[in-house]
Design a protein around this nucleic acid. Structure first.
Length: 229
DNA sequence: CGCCAGGGCCTCA
DNA sequence: TGAGGCCATGGC
């Protein structure tokens, strides 16, 4: 972890986090995160952001967070629906299921050997979900732990991902690491907006701030310092 | 066909 | 503590 703080000067020369949030929300609207399976299909619903979740929904979000590691969400949906058909969105079932059956079910999500092992490890976890306890589980790193805490347990944590790093880098905040980006957002946005902001940034990263960015119609181009070559 | 996707672990300086 | 290799499928 680095001790580097964002200086006042840097903040003045860069976009306000709140302004970016507002611009993205006005453009994209509520994202309905985390998406959940309802009646055999994965859906987004605005109420998901604030609703009280069942144990099953919390588990579904958690294994979705593992399955989406470096993977397109559409592929994760296929894996989740396969698990749903097996009634395997349940920790006891995941613990007891044949490892080859599990591998086959989650195959569309990629890295299926590793992820089958990760799901087994997570399903066997019993204790209280804290950042430290989750990080001690094999296969759960910073982003996955924070995704589980934020979206499954409504903890006031902002989730940082590759989109976040790329977008903030282009805004002009420099190459900040995970902890620095998390702190930057958490110090400039109310906790009630953490879930939505992350979801909005993912949307921006998918459709505009791609590896090869499409800046012309970007909803936050006014707040951004990046100039495409 | 090549590139990329809502990371994390392991190894080796 | 950080860079690099590895894991893998499906969409475009």
């Amino acid at each position: 972890m680095s001790n580097r703080k964002i200086s006042k000067k840097e903040m003045q020369n860069t976009a306000s986090i709140k302004d970016v949030y507002t611009a993205l929300f006005n453009c994209f609207g509520p994202q309905g995160w985390w998406p959940l399976i309802k009646n055999g299909e994965v859906v987004h619903h605005a109420s998901f952001t604030s609703k009280e979740l069942t144990k099953k929904e919390q588990f579904e979000i958690s294994i979705g967070a593992i399955l989406t590691q470096n993977t397109n969400w559409k592929n994760v949906e296929k894996a989740l629906l396969n698990l749903d058909k097996l009634n395997a969105i349940n920790p006891k079932v995941i613990q007891n299921i044949n490892i080859n059956t599990l591998r086959k079910a989650i195959k569309p999500a990629g890295y299926y050997n590793q992820k089958a092992k990760k799901l087994k490890a997570f399903a066997g976890f019993k204790g209280k979900s804290t950042r430290t306890s989750l990080l001690s589980i094999w296969g759960i790193g910073l982003e996955t732990a924070d995704s589980i805490l934020c979206y499954a347990h409504s903890c006031p944590l902002f989730v940082v991902d590759t989109y976040t790093k790329r977008i903030f880098s282009r805004f002009g905040f420099g190459e900040l690491d995970y902890a620095q980006l998390q702190e930057l957002v958490q110090e400039n946005l109310n906790p009630e907006h953490y879930k939505e902001f992350h979801a909005l940034l993912v949307n921006l990263g998918k459709h505009y701030c791609k590896k090869d960015p499409e800046c012309e119609d970007c909803p936050v181009k006014k707040q951004c310092n990046y100039t495409k070559q």
